[in-house]
Design a protein around this nucleic acid. Structure first.
Lengths: 209, 209
DNA sequence: CCAGTATTAGAGCGCGTTCTCCAATACTGG
DNA sequence: CCAGTATTGGAGAACGCGCTCTAATACTGG
């Protein structure tokens, strides 16, 4: 990405850092996330994202090579940020505590990051990015590995095995159920109410008790 | 919709039915649903829908006034078809049987109608239609009334009251949980496995028992 | 101060999309 | 057979979109 216009024939000139960026990559991604949260994929046109942060459209294409690449990087960043808190909760040594905390981390995170929650919960990757850029399919392939491993490890410690049925049960309880609980509120644009957390706790306890 | 080109000045001529349609509305909607299920909203262009059923694009605009109107009618039709089976199950006199059957009706319906399930579960109305046509916002406003009423009635009979907490619990158990249970399978393009039904039954029993 | 470089800045191209338009067509009831 | 009408069929206009391109610009280390 960086140094795209540099002619390699001039040799390894290591000096000169160049003009500093007025519109850093994360600022652009923030703008895209906001437009996406407000108006869906159709609203996150390149010119709209540029206008939202006061940048020329050329700057977006200088930093990201294409619209798909921009949205793909936003997707990776958003998934990573959510998974960080989910995995941290799931790492608690006490199994029941880990399960309930991880599940409740979903509504908590949605309250703290409403725009990113809308990006993550209201859109599928395929319809957001369209054609996933080849240079990012390495990251895509391993995106869910950490969560999958943590769920398998949790299942193994809880049941002594990580067979299909047990893993499916844990995935349902810790991933699908919390998503189900918050989705209508995220879609409505309001913070999930406190009763959501109670329902999630109760459901997780019933399924994994 | 019909008779759009008729000049009202010629008076009430009630004879003549006109040329029969080679591409009825439901055929067009079926094509749109298939493209939508396979490739998302971006794949359901008017020319693509027309090509999918071998019709000229003009026929789509003759029957539906616009792409938004076409997709809006597809949305209404799909929601209605799903709700019919959900409500039928929820109408069972035995409360527990009604609850479990209604919840399990979701994975059952997804297996029977995979394309429509993808339309309904994988896309939100706002991003599918864009600008909802004014002539259909009457139907939109009452779309969920029947389900809302049935859920409220079920809650009232079960708890003696349809207060916010109880209604939220029933909605979570009978709507959100089944949707969450099938979603990953519908998104993956495979029929929800039988264990989904078992998890849904168990969750509903735990939440409403 | 200078050479080198990354970035800004914005005008504009090409493409795919929705939608319009009109003649031709195939059926109706009488 | 006829008048009336809904529908087909397809070409193309109008528009918005992603993306490209070139010059100007604002920094860097030496």
């Amino acid at each position: 990405m960086v140094g795209r216009r540099r002619d390699p024939r001039v040799g390894p000139r290591l000096t000169a850092m160049g003009r500093p960026a007025r519109f850093p990559a994360d600022l652009i991604l923030d703008g895209a996330a906001r437009l996406l949260a407000e108006g869906g994929p159709g609203a996150a046109t390149t010119t709209a994202v540029a206008a939202a942060i006061g940048a020329p459209s050329g700057s977006l294409y200088h930093r990201f090579g294409s619209r798909d690449l921009l949205l793909a990087r936003l997707w990776v960043r958003t998934v990573g940020r959510f998974q960080a808190v989910f995995l941290a909760a799931l790492a608690h040594p006490d199994l029941d505590r880990a399960a309930v905390d991880a599940a409740v981390a979903v509504p908590v995170w949605c309250r703290a990051h409403p725009d990113e929650a809308r990006v993550l919960l209201l859109h599928r990757r395929a319809e957001l990015v369209g054609r996933w850029p080849a240079e990012l399919d390495g990251e895509l392939a391993t995106l869910n590995d950490a969560v999958a491993a943590a769920l398998a490890e949790h299942t193994r410690r809880r049941y002594g095995t990580a067979g299909g049925a047990e893993l499916a049960r844990a995935t349902f309880a810790l991933v699908d159920v919390p998503h189900a609980a918050v989705r209508r509120h995220v879609a409505a644009g309001v913070a999930p109410p406190a009763e959501v957390d109670a329902l999630v706790r109760e459901t997780v306890a019933a399924l994994l008790g």
